[in-house]
Structure formats: C-alpha cells, structure tokens
Design a protein around this nucleic acid. Structure first.
Length: 316
DNA sequence: GACCCGTGGGA
DNA sequence: TTCCCAAGGGT
C-alpha cells in the first residue's frame, strides 16, 4: 500500500506548479463548468476549448441556452462529436430553468437527474463548481489508480465497484483538499500518466508507484478497438455534417444519390459549398442502401434530425 | 455487461 | 498509413 500523505502532498504540489490554465477552472460559474464537463466527455481539451468559449459568449446561462432552437445548438456544437450530447445539454438547460429556477443545482443527486449527466459528470460538477467532496472517477483517475496503487498498466475494461471504493478511500477528508486531489490526479493522468508512453520521468509520485515497482508489466488484456470504417456511426456522422452545413431541408434524394447533386446547391442558403462538400464525403462512403436508411432512421429517432416533405433537416 | 454513439490529432 | 483513444452516458 502507498504512503497516503506523501502522495497527496506530492500531487498537490505538482498540480499547483504544472496544471494547465483552463478557462473552466478557477473563477468560472457553475454553468461554465457544467458545459465544459459535457463537452469533455470523450473529447480532448484542445478541441473543446474554442467551442466552449463560443458557447459561453453566446449562451452565458442555462436560460439562454434553453431559449435557443435545437438546430442552432447542434450547429454550434460543430464537430465535437457525439452530437446527442448537445441535445441532452440543451434539455438539461431547460430542466434547470423549470425545476431549479435557472440555477445549476449544487448537489450530486440533483445533477445526476439531469439528462446527459452520469456518475462522473455529476460528481465533477458538484466538486469543481461547488467545492463539494465527491468521489470523482474518470478515465484518467482510473488509470492513475491502476498504476500507482494496484500496479497494473491499465484499469479494467469497465468501471468496477472496487475502483469506486478505492477512489473513495483515497479521497482527502477536507472538502477543499478533496477537490484539489481530484483535479490533480485527473491532470496527472492527462499530462504524465498517459495511456500510451507515460512520462514517468516527470511523475511526482514515481517513487511510490506500484506499477514501476513491479517492473511496468504489460496490460493484462488487449483493449478492444473502436471500429469506424463502414459503420453506421460513420454514415451518421457524414449525414450530420450535411445537415449542419445546410440552413434549409436537404432533399432525401440528395443524400441517397450523387446523380442529382448538380441540381441541388441552389436550394440551400448559407453555405452551399460546404453542403456540396459534405454530400461528396457522404457519397464517397459508397454506403449501401439499408445502412443509409438505418443511419437516417437512427438520427431521426434520436431527435438529431427531422424529416419533412422538403427533406431532412436539423430539429426546430 | 454489452453495445451504441463522432471526431480528429498524435504515435 | 493505420491505429489508438479522449474529463462518458444511455439503453
């Protein structure tokens, strides 16, 4: 077992000296923290940052976002990926207005009840926006714990109760210290204790690391990849790119067939060049009909797109 | 628990 | 170039 006090002190000092200055850290309203946490789900900081800045300027409160049309929210989401996060964030904003008088709730349970907020995000917002003592466990923290305490190269494929128990055990009693510990371990995982080629030479707790002590054993399993080429997700992404670029409904025929593409552009205001380019990319996939149908139905079913007589478009 | 959901930068 | 994977959540 590790020497708790030393590890906590080393991580705290390292964090204060090394941490990135991120706009949603420090003096940031809870709404900004919430938006950042949703955007950061499975998405790197460098890509979130500019979009987050735009959102804060455009929708500085839950009420502001709740009043925006879903289509505008999806367009503003840009290419962050997993666009249903944008829809859920929009729905969360509406719920905050309706049930919490427009103020981001400050407890884990209330946050967890909002759409798009799970155990990680609920704990993270409660901790980082409101200074609460919460067991925050994300992919970075899981990996650091796996190496530092357990001595394994990677955490288990899915989050286990044992990991939550360990994280709770390691959490400092003092709320302020617990917040900094959570942020510090997360930052350590993001900058030093990375998934591939960790920078152990820069690690403040390398002396206490069980994985180093064990001789840096290989992972006990092979992480399963995320297939992409030829999947429905790829097709959905290509369709979404078309709809984001188009300000008006896109004729279904244009999505199905490159043959009628030449007659298309004039019907779309805004960014006809981008619409044409996105259509080219979709057609370049040579998607089979059942797959495109599945993708379109899926997008409509998820509320990301609507189908009218004029064609497919982002939801009003 | 297994599976699905986007995107792009870096190794 | 191909592969990995990133502050997860919902079903």
């Amino acid at each position: 077992m590790l020497e708790g006090e030393t590890v906590h002190q080393e991580v705290r000092q390292w964090f204060r000296e090394t941490a990135r200055e991120l706009p949603w850290r420090g003096d940031c309203p809870p709404w900004g923290v919430l938006v950042s946490e949703i955007m950061l789900q499975q998405t790197p900081v460098v890509r979130v940052r500019p979009i987050w800045e735009e959102w804060m300027a455009r929708w500085p409160s839950p009420a502001a976002l709740a009043a925006a049309p879903p289509a505008e929210v999806l367009r503003a989401w840009g290419r962050l990926g997993y666009p249903r996060r944008a829809l859920r964030l929009h729905a969360a904003a509406a719920q905050i207005v309706e049930r919490h008088d427009g103020a981001v709730p400050d407890t884990f349970d209330e946050l967890l009840a909002l759409p798009g907020i799970g155990t990680y995000t609920g704990a993270a917002v409660a901790a980082f926006a409101f200074g609460r003592r919460e067991t925050v466990v994300d992919t970075n923290i899981r990996r650091v714990h796996a190496r530092l305490v357990i001595g394994q190269a990677l955490p288990s494929p899915s989050l286990t109760a044992a990991e939550m128990a360990l994280a709770a055990e390691l959490l400092p009693e003092d709320p302020a210290e617990s917040v900094e510990w959570n942020a510090g371990v997360m930052e350590l995982g993001a900058l030093v204790c990375t998934a591939r080629s960790p920078k152990c030479g820069l690690c403040p707790v390398v002396e206490q690391c069980a994985w180093i002590a064990a001789g840096q054993p290989e992972p006990a399993y092979v992480p399963k990849g995320q297939p992409w080429a030829g999947t429905d997700r790829q097709v959905r992404g290509a369709v979404m790119a078309v709809l984001r670029a188009a300000d008006s409904p896109v004729q279904a025929e244009l999505l199905w067939s490159p043959a009628v593409e030449l007659t298309a552009d004039a019907s779309h205001t805004g960014h006809p060049g981008e619409v044409a380019a996105a259509l080219d990319r979709l057609h370049g996939l040579n998607t089979h009909a059942p797959q495109l149908q599945r993708a379109l139905s899926g997008l409509v079913g998820d509320g990301l797109a609507q189908l009218s007589e004029a064609g497919y478009h982002l939801p009003h």
